[in-house]
């Protein structure tokens, strides 16, 4: 419990910044929605001038962009991008912050198992992500209800919103694995930014050329927003794959960390 609380304390600043930023982005986008909804036809006409590939890459679905959920799922792609960076930072920080800050020695000479250290920190990451998402979803929901001209499908709305959390879990797990593999990463940000953007670009590219294979590669595509909108459900196959990615990354990362010499000084 002490390590968990310590971890929350260490991360509270960054959690606040991320939470406020994500909430601000959703407020900003939703406040643009009424004008898009009003001049929907013109907006669509403008969009039609763009090549189809570009629209797809940007996550624009012309036939639904003027609906509230369509618009939400359009800018949600960028929410997921931010969320992924936050999650990967947290995941990578679990180990690399202790090692590069040379505080690992402090923890490892305390009467706790390495497994305990990892679980405490992971639970803290989980809680931080939950809080961030909770605030985000609540703010988004309030905004959506404020700007919506017509009723929208609440279940679909929440399913879309929750996708961010699941994508974040994948990136946090990935980050943890990377930091167990290379514990001496000095600054976490370039690593997580690099990884997240690489996956994001694969995802954009995959969308542009409608490539099915890219769906398996990048976590951003595990939750296909148009699919969720249409079926009000996640795809079981990708749910399973996502869970597998998380279990494998966390398992392998933990295994590495348990076996590894820690050179903190």
């Amino acid at each position: 419990m002490n390590m968990f609380l310590h971890e929350l304390r260490e991360n509270r600043r960054s959690m606040m910044i991320w939470t406020i930023s994500l909430a601000a982005v959703t407020v900003l986008f939703f406040s643009m929605y009424p004008s898009i909804e009003k001049d929907g036809d013109q907006f669509i006409k403008v969009l039609q001038n763009y090549p189809e590939g570009v629209l797809k890459a940007l996550g624009v679905q012309i036939n639904s962009i003027t609906s509230l959920l369509g618009f939400y799922s359009y800018f949600f792609l960028y929410i997921m991008l931010c969320g992924a960076i936050q999650a990967m930072n947290l995941g990578t920080g679990i180990l690399s912050k202790e090692v590069s800050g040379k505080t690992a020695e402090f923890l490892l000479t305390k009467p706790v198992t390495r497994g305990r250290i990892i679980t405490s920190k992971m639970v803290a990451v989980l809680v931080i992500l939950l809080i961030t998402n909770l605030v985000f979803v609540v703010v988004s929901y309030i905004m959506a209800n404020t700007v919506a001209a017509n009723d929208f499908d609440t279940s679909a709305f929440f399913l879309i919103s929750a996708a961010n959390f699941f994508v974040q879990l994948m990136f946090a797990a990935l980050g943890f694995f990377v930091s167990a593999l290379f514990p001496r990463i000095r600054s976490v940000l370039p690593v997580s930014l690099g990884t997240v953007f690489a996956f994001f670009i694969i995802s954009m590219f995959g969308s542009a050329i409608s490539d099915e294979a890219s769906r398996y590669i990048t976590p951003f595509k595990y939750f296909d927003l148009p699919y969720i909108m249409k079926h009000t459900a996640y795809e079981p196959l990708f749910m399973g794959l996502g869970a597998a990615v998380i279990v494998i990354a966390v398992g392998a990362g933990s295994f590495l960390f348990m076996k590894k010499d820690i050179h903190a000084a």
Partner: peptide, 16 residues
């Protein structure tokens, strides 16, 4: 972990 309950350790370089 069990042993470390009764150990106090001072590293040569102190980082916190």
């Amino acid at each position: 972990p069990e042993i470390k309950k009764q150990i106090g350790y001072l590293p040569s370089e102190v980082f916190y």
